[in-house]
Design a protein around this nucleic acid. Structure first.
Length: 749
DNA sequence: GCGGGTTCTCTTTTT
DNA sequence: GAGAACCCGC
C-alpha cells in the first residue's frame, strides 16, 4: 500500500504503532482524520486484523460517518464491518443486547433533554418543592454531572460532601429528586443520554463475563476527540482495552470545548499516568492554513495555563492578514459579512461553499440570515432547531414511542390529550399517581380506566387505550411505515394539522409528511434488514444531529463554533466577538472556563484555510432588547502582528444616538420597535442619565450600579495588564461575587 | 376540561 | 421575541 509514503514521519509513526497504548496529540489541521483512517486501513490490510475487532469511538455522528466513508475509499466494503460510532450510539446498541442484565427491556426508550426536563418538572411539582429553586435545567445538569462522574443516586445521597454542596446551594432535596428521577426513568423503561454511558459502566462492573466478551471482541480501541471525554466515557474505554491494551486516543487539549457536558481535560493531560508505557506522538505540522492564521491561532491559546507543550507550524504561505471588522450593530455586521462574501466570491471565482460564518450562540444566526437573503446568497444553517425537535414531529414520534413502549411516561403525557380528547391535566395527574401508588405501569392504569377515573374521562381513556392497542397489533405484522401512517391518520394528528390553514400550520403538516417519507425511506432501504417500528425508533433516537447530508449544495454554511469542529473552509468569519457574548458571560465564573472560551476561539480560527475575518458589533439585540457591546477581550489578546483593522467599515460607527448621550453607549432596556434609523429612541431602564463613570476612580467599598445587575458594593479592584477588574457584591445576587470590567459601572455618589 | 389572554422565563455550547 | 406556564371565566 503506498498510502504510507504520503505521510510525514510523525504521521507514519502514529499509523504504524499499532500495539500497546498510544496517544496522538493532533494539532488543528495536522491531518488527524487521515492518520486515523489510514491507521485503521493499515491494521486491516497490513496486520490482517479482522474489521470486527476494531472499535472507533467519535463524538458526533457526522465524524463517524465521514470516517467510515474515507476508510471505505481506502479499502473498500470491508470497512463497513468495523465498529464505528458515537459513544452513545455504540453503547446504546450494546445495551439493547444486554438490557436484560440490568432489568431493562431491550426496547427501552431513550429520553432526550426535553423529556428529561419535563420529567423533572413533574417530580418537583409532586414533591411540592419550589420550582424557582429546583429549575429543570439546574436539576438536570446537576444529575447529569453526577452521572458523568459515575455517582449513582445511592452514592449521591450518602456522600457528605455532595450533600454539603447542595445544602450550601440551598438545594438540599437534590439527591431525593435524583433518586425519584431514576426510579421514574426505570419505570418508564427509559434511559436518558447519560444513562447510556452510566449503565454501560454498571453492566461492565457487575457482569465480568459480558465485559470479557467485549474485551475479546475489541482487540483495538480508538477514541477520537479524546479531550472531550468525560469520566464515564473514559472508564468504559479503559475497561474495554484492559486485556489487549491496544488503546489509541487521539486529541488536542487546545480544542477541549465540552466541559459543560462533563468533558474533563484532565483525561488527556493525565493520560500517561494510567499507562506508564504509553507512546506519545505529536502531529505538529499544520497543512490547512496560512502562516498568518496559524500564528494568530497560536497566540490565542498561548495564555492558557493548562496545556500540553507543542509547536504548531506550517510550511504554507503567509497569506492575507486577518481582518478585523467593527460594525455598529448586529445587522450591519451581517451586511458587511454578506457583502464581503459577495465581493470575494466574484473577484476570486470562489464558491458559496468556500465560506463559513461561525458564532457562539445559535440565536446569532438571524442577523446573518437576513443579510444573506437580501444579497441572494444561498446558505444553510447547521444545528439550531433540528427537525426532530419540532413539536409536530415530537408529537407523532411520541405516539410511535408509546406504541412500542407503553411504559413511556413522557410519551404518554404528550399524546394522551393531543389531539384533544377530553382527558385534562387532572386526569393525567390521577393516572400517574395511581401508577406510582399501586406500583403498576401506566399502561395497566389505562387499561383499567374505570377503577381510577370517573365517568366521562374514563370512557375517553378507554377509547384511547383501544386505539393504542390497535396500533400495537398493527406493529406485530406491518412495517414501520405502514404503522406510522396509520398512527398519523387514526390519532387525528394529520386532521388537526390539516385544518390549520395558517402558513405555520401548513408547514407543520408538511413536516409530518416528511417524517413519514423518512420512515418510508428507512423501510425501503436494503441496508436496514429489520423494518419494524421498534427498529426504526432505535435508529432514530440518537440522530438528533442533522444527518441527512445535503452536503453537495453550493451554499454558505452557518453554525455555532461547537458544531464546526472537524470542518474546514477557505474563508471563515467569526462573528459576535463581544464581551459577555464571546467569551460568554455564563462561563466567566472561573479561570478554567475562560480558558475553555479561549480554546473555543482557537477552534473557530483554525477552521480557516485561506482567510480569517473577526468581527464585533457595538450594539446587538437580545430578547428583544438592545445591548451595548464592548469588543471581546480576546481581540486584545491577539498578537496584532498580522491583523488588519478595517478602518473604512469601522468609521460609520456613531449612528446610534440616544437622548442626552453621545457616541454609541446604548444600554439595556430599549424596546425593539424604537430602533429605526433617524428615530429618537426611548430609554426605559435604567434611567436616561445612566452613563459610565470614570471608572479609574473605582475603589474598594464604593457603591456602584450596573445596568444588568443593579446596585452593588466593590470588594476588590484588580489590575491585570491593561485590564482593570472589580470584584463586586450585588444586592440581588445573594452570596455571589461577580468579577467585572469597569466599562458598564456607574459610581453611586 | 377548555380556550383565550396574559405573564414569565430563558436564552451556551450537544449526545 | 418565542414558547411555556399560568390564570380566569365559561
Amino acid at each position: 500500500m503506498d498510502y504510507l509514503s504520503s505521510l510525514n514521519p510523525q504521521q507514519r509513526e502514529a499509523v504504524e504503532c499499532t500495539e500497546g497504548p498510544l496517544m496522538i496529540i493532533a494539532g488543528a489541521g495536522s491531518g488527524k482524520t487521515r492518520v486515523l483512517t489510514i491507521r485503521i486501513a493499515h491494521l486491516i490490510h497490513q496486520k490482517g486484523v479482522d474489521p470486527f475487532q476494531i472499535l472507533s469511538l467519535t463524538f458526533t455522528n457526522k465524524a463517524a460517518s465521514e470516517m467510515k466513508q474515507r476508510i471505505e475509499k481506502l479499502i473498500g466494503l470491508e470497512a463497513r464491518n468495523t465498529w464505528m460510532g458515537t459513544f452513545h450510539s455504540v453503547f446504546a446498541k450494546i445495551l439493547r443486547v444486554e438490557a436484560g442484565k440490568l432489568g431493562y427491556p431491550s426496547n427501552f426508550t431513550i429520553y432526550d433533554t426535553e423529556d428529561s426536563k419535563s420529567l423533572i418538572r413533574s417530580i418537583v411539582k409532586e414533591k411540592k418543592l419550589d420550582d424557582k429553586v429546583y429549575k429543570p435545567n439546574t436539576v438536570l445538569s446537576r444529575i447529569s454531572g453526577a452521572k458523568n462522574r459515575l455517582i449513582s443516586w445511592q452514592t449521591y445521597l450518602n456522600d457528605p460532601y455532595v450533600r454539603a454542596d447542595d445544602e450550601a446551594a440551598l438545594k438540599p432535596k437534590m439527591g431525593e429528586i435524583y433518586k425519584t428521577y431514576q426510579e421514574r426513568l426505570f419505570k418508564s423503561s427509559a434511559m436518558d443520554f447519560d444513562d447510556l454511558l452510566f449503565n454501560t459502566n454498571v453492566l461492565f462492573r457487575d457482569h465480568p463475563d459480558i465485559l470479557n466478551k467485549y474485551q475479546q471482541r475489541f482487540r483495538y480501541v480508538m477514541v477520537d476527540e479524546f479531550q472531550d471525554t468525560n469520566l464515564s466515557q473514559y472508564l468504559i474505554t479503559k475497561k474495554l482495552a484492559a486485556v489487549h491494551q491496544n488503546i489509541c486516543v487521539v486529541g488536542d487539549d487546545a480544542q477541549s470545548i465540552y466541559a459543560f457536558r462533563g468533558a474533563d481535560i484532565q483525561n488527556i493531560l493525565n493520560f500517561e499516568k494510567d499507562y506508564p508505557d504509553l507512546r506519545t506522538v505529536k502531529l505538529e505540522q499544520n497543512y490547512r492554513s496560512t502562516k498568518n492564521i496559524v500564528h494568530t491561532a497560536n497566540s490565542i491559546i498561548a495564555k492558557n495555563k493548562a496545556q500540553l507543550k507543542k509547536n504548531i507550524w506550517t510550511a504554507n504561505d503567509h497569506g492575507a492578514p486577518i481582518e478585523l471588522i467593527k460594525a455598529t450593530s448586529d445587522n450591519e455586521e451581517g451586511r458587511i459579512v454578506a457583502t464581503t462574501i459577495f465581493e470575494e466570491k466574484n473577484s476570486l471565482q470562489l464558491q458559496n461553499s468556500d465560506f463559513a460564518i461561525l458564532y457562539r450562540t445559535n440565536s446569532q444566526s438571524r442577523a446573518m440570515e437576513e443579510a444573506l437573503r437580501k444579497m441572494n446568497i444561498a446558505y444553510r444553517i447547521v444545528g439550531g432547531l433540528s427537525f426532530y425537535q419540532r413539536k409536530e414531529i415530537k408529537d407523532l414520534m411520541a405516539y410511535l414511542r408509546f406504541v412500542v413502549n407503553p411504559s413511556d411516561e413522557e410519551a404518554f403525557k404528550r399524546i394522551v390529550n393531543y389531539p384533544k380528547r377530553g382527558i385534562g391535566d387532572t386526569s393525567v395527574e390521577k393516572i400517574l399517581v395511581a401508577a406510582y401508588e399501586h406500583d403498576i405501569s401506566i399502561w395497566e392504569v389505562i387499561t383499567h380506566a374505570s377503577s381510577f377515573l370517573s365517568g366521562r374521562s374514563a370512557s375517553s381513556l378507554d377509547d384511547f387505550s383501544v386505539m393504542i392497542r390497535s396500533f400495537a397489533m398493527d406493529m406485530e405484522r406491518k412495517d414501520a411505515y405502514e404503522v406510522a401512517s396509520t398512527v398519523a391518520k387514526q390519532s387525528g394528528i394529520l386532521r388537526e394539522l390539516y385544518e390549520d390553514k395558517t402558513i405555520e400550520g401548513l408547514n407543520r403538516y408538511e413536516n409530518v409528511q416528511e417524517l413519514l417519507n423518512a420512515i418510508k425511506e428507512y423501510v425501503d432501504s436494503p441496508e436496514n434488514e429489520i423494518k419494524t417500528l421498534g427498529a426504526f425508533l432505535q435508529e432514530i433516537a440518537l440522530l438528533t444531529d442533522e444527518d441527512q447530508n445535503k452536503n453537495n449544495q453550493d451554499v454558505v454554511t452557518l453554525m455555532t463554533i461547537h458544531a464546526s469542529k472537524g470542518l474546514e473552509f477557505k474563508y471563515v468569519f467569526v462573528v459576535g466577538l463581544e464581551e459577555d457574548l464571546f467569551p460568554s458571560q455564563m462561563m466567566m465564573q472561573s479561570r478554567e472556563d475562560l480558558e475553555e472560551e479561549r480554546r473555543l476561539f482557537y477552534v473557530a480560527t483554525t477552521r480557516a484555510m485561506d482567510r480569517l475575518y473577526l468581527s464585533h458589533a457595538m450594539t446587538r439585540y437580545r430578547y428583544g432588547r438592545l445591548l451595548s457591546c464592548e469588543p471581546s477581550r480576546f481581540l486584545e489578546e491577539l498578537d496584532p502582528t498580522y491583523i488588519k483593522v478595517n478602518k473604512k467599515l469601522g468609521s460609520s460607527a456613531a449612528s446610534f444616538q440616544f437622548p442626552g448621550r453621545e457616541g454609541n453607549n446604548g444600554f439595556v432596556g430599549l424596546k425593539r420597535p424604537a430602533i429605526r434609523e433617524g428615530i429618537t429612541a426611548k430609554v426605559h431602564t435604567p434611567s436616561p442619565d445612566f452613563k459610565p463613570s470614570n471608572t479609574n476612580n473605582l475603589a474598594e467599598g464604593m457603591q456602584v450600579e450596573h445596568p444588568k445587575f443593579g446596585f452593588g458594593k466593590v470588594l476588590k479592584v484588580e489590575t491585570e495588564g491593561a485590564n482593570r477588574k472589580a470584584s463586586i457584591h450585588f444586592d440581588n445576587f445573594g452570596d455571589k461575587t461577580l468579577l467585572l470590567s469597569f466599562a458598564k459601572l456607574r459610581i453611586v455618589e
